[in-house]
Amino acid sequence: MRKPHLVAAAALAAASWATLAQDKDPTIAEIEKYREMLADGNPAELYEARGEELWKTRRGPNNASLEQCDLGLGPGVVKGAYARMPRYFADTDKVQDLESRLVTCMTTLQGFKAEDVTKRPYGSEDHKSDLEALTAYVVGQSRGMKMNVSTAHPKEREAFEIGKQIFYHRGGPYDFACATCHGEDGKRIRLQDLPNLTTRKGAQLAYTAWPAYRVSQGELRTMQWRLWDCFRQQRFPEPKYGSDATVALTMYLAASANGGVYNGPGIKR
């Protein structure tokens, strides 16, 4: 199988890429080497497979699978669901992104407690995250489809407008906003290219590549994680997992990416 090879590649890459945005980054030659390694395949596939199994397995106090979970296209419909999220759900009377919706299904269908499910949403070597795997599975079922997120419902429209405000909101000790780092074309932090998320092209390019397998961390990371780590770099306090503020921001990014072909789960340094 491909697994051992991939894991070795990931470990190697992790070693040379262990430093993050804030530290000294490797040179361009190393980037090229890394890109070659990635051409071999994406370990995200392993997460997709585990997620599919989790989706179909009876679990939790109710001993139920997630196969009746409604992701917006009707109970059990996974194909194409992610390309239309976030969206308004009548049963919760809320706009939800995929991850907060998964938490809803795990509580209502399987009987898990929301606090337990979201306690450690981001996995590590000794603690694999079910949410990351489930997310990988669902997004993979929208690969090749065009992003088509609605802002027609008043609550969807409101989430978009609030999300936009959050994107431009400067604060914290360094006065940073998302827009400080992602508001202009062709900028970088150290050697890392910063997508301009205020343009359709930039938003499409960035949004359609997430969730992604992070080579430097050896884990699949979701959009919630991406926002969480950018808020950290922004020197903000910590956003709560799946909270309305993170969903609103995701709504702004996702709707800005409309028309782009969804291509995740991707792979990142």
Binding site: H169, P237, K240, D244, A248
Partner: peptide, 12 residues
């Protein structure tokens, strides 16, 4: 609304 929501949805 965005400011109020952030104050509710972020934590130290």
């Amino acid at each position: 609304k965005a400011l109020a929501m952030m104050k509710r949805d972020f934590q130290s």
